[in-house]
Amino acid sequence: MHIAARLARAGVMGINRRNAEFTLRYNRRDRYPLVDDKLKTKRLAEQAGLCVPELYEVVEIEHQIKGIHERLARYPDFVVKPAGGSGGDGIVVITGRMKDHYRKASGAILTREELDYHLLNILNGMFSLGGYRDHALIEYRVKSDPVFGEISFQGVPDIRIVVLLGVPVMAMVRLPTRASDGKANLHQGAIGTGVDMATGRTLSAVWRNTVLDEHPDTGNAVTGVRIPQWDRLLHLAARACDLTGLGYVGVDFVLDREHGPMILELNARPGLNIQIANRAGLLPRLRAVEEHRAHLADLDARIEFAKRRFAAPTS
């Protein structure tokens, strides 16, 4: 039982508390579709001038699958994802072609028929919450910024910023590893590193509950890496949160080599692993925001507050 007491002292938040006191309290039900449907999120972000991966095609009915290969012919690479998917399920990354076939990020070959079948499965709701009919998005494949090139294995690392009431609270970088099969999911074996909110410098990394400083596959240091355009990321995260009308969200970014920070998706039920990556509890920060939010007038004040209050202790 003393574990629970220690966790409580460290301000670690459990799922029950997140649901009861944050998602249920700050996130209105009617706003969920904005983030649960990636197509809506994308359109919303585009209207607000936030940068998102360019949308190539939307497949909403079976009929649209016909001729899709011809329409995609002009793109050397792309990503297929279900609009209503969660946790990265159903995402297929195509990095190139081999004659009539496609090559996946893992190097495996995908035939045209297999891609059609995957699209059909998406439409039939195989990956959506509750099995409802879904649509498939085909969009620009993000090319990882060189800053992360040395500390990730295949795949594209992403940056998760948790925002409460428009104030960025905590952030982490998820680095794919060989074990995670190029996916940026912590429970699949990706590395999570905490981020110093003040500077955007990566802190110590956690991989499967062990703390490490180097990438297990590339051997390069993962701590102390400076995320470029950190201030811009913080601003974008806060604005995305305002845009959706949701009080408590996780904003996922990728850093594209050419286009800079892009919003990948928003999550109205952000996970709790970010606490492990940062080796810090969320609760004290969330409480601080709840306490001071009324005095933070504009965007800059909010960012300033986050950078000041949630800076990593200088060692």
């Binding site: 220690r6 966790l7 460290a10 670690v12 029950n16 703390v211 709790l272 606490q275």
Partner: peptide, 23 residues
């Protein structure tokens, strides 16, 4: 139980790395 916001037993294991730190 609908208002229970404490930890789940499995979370004690999941976050155990965080419990080791601090005082």
């Amino acid at each position: 139980f609908g208002r229970y916001s404490g930890y789940r037993l499995t979370e004690l294991r999941r976050f155990r790395a965080l419990a080791k730190e601090g005082p």
